[in-house]
């Protein structure tokens, strides 16, 4: 059997750190959109975070949103271009910390957009500060003795929240990882489901992806893999919280 390495048409180069999880997710998005025949029918609304060093990897119509506001911008775009696949690509700080209002409200209104959020349990871009997704006890630049949940709140679970809270009626909510081939394939299926939901007009879809940030975790990529499959996944279970109807 010959294995042909196919690079999606819309995938360019990025300047992310070695071992960073962002790059894999960007590639998965482009693979899925190409397979769905939507490569030339997509608008990416990118948040502010390490994705800013990788926007050149997205050779598509792009809008660099203000920090935290990607969902609002995406809604404005989608209302005007209902037949185009519109998605946000945001870090956890962007999507859930500063952007908690815009993200929850987009989900609340069940806007027909897709949110891809990258949960690396810290603010990568600004040098590894605490995020709402930081694990209890996790050391970051603003929680040097470990996150104190008494004072700072508990880890934030967006997909579960929008999938299961009364008043939300989103189309699809899931969480995956990109830790190994199996989980990458599983996450790819989730991303496909999310975009299919949008193409069918089912409403808001979100896929959160747990990724490694070797630079700010001060770990090797192998150590990151280990951390994700143990402590990160035990806080943030992988799976589909709202399946498509």
């Amino acid at each position: 059997m010959t294995i042909i390495k196919k690079i999606p048409d819309k995938l360019g180069q990025h300047a992310l750190c070695a071992g960073c999880g962002h790059g894999i997710v960007i590639r998965l998005i482009q693979e899925v959109l190409q397979e769905l025949g939507q490569a030339d029918n997509q608008i990416a609304v990118v948040g502010v975070g390490c994705i800013c060093t990788a926007t050149s990897a997205l050779k598509v119509d792009r809008f660099q949103a203000a920090h935290g506001r990607a969902c609002a911008t995406a809604e404005g775009i989608k209302r005007v271009r209902p037949n185009v696949v519109v998605y946000t690509y945001q870090g956890d700080g962007d999507a859930y910390t500063i952007g908690i209002a815009e993200s929850l409200n987009a989900a609340y209104r069940n806007e027909n957009i897709t949110m891809i959020s990258i949960n690396n349990t810290n603010f990568g871009m600004t040098g590894g500060q605490m995020s709402w997704t930081t694990l209890p006890g996790q050391k970051t630049e603003t929680s040097v003795n470990g996150r104190d949940c008494e004072l700072t709140g508990l880890p934030f679970h967006f997909p579960e929240m929008v999938a299961n809270s009364q008043g939300f009626h989103v189309a699809y909510a899931a969480r995956g990882t990109v830790n190994d081939v199996k989980s990458i394939n599983q996450t790819k299926r989730m991303i496909r489901n999310a975009f299919e939901a949008q193409l069918n007009g089912e409403g808001f879809s979100v896929v959160e992806v747990l990724t490694a940030c070797p630079t700010n975790w001060h770990m090797t990529p192998q150590q990151c893999q280990e951390r994700i499959s143990t402590s990160v996944e035990s806080e943030y279970p992988v799976g589909e919280f709202k399946k498509r109807g």
Binding site: A65, A72, A74, G76, I77, K78, R81, E102
Partner: peptide, 12 residues
């Protein structure tokens, strides 16, 4: 959110 929606809509 309103101004960010406006920006998105205008760009589209």
């Amino acid at each position: 959110a309103a101004i960010n929606m406006v920006m998105g809509a205008a760009s589209a």
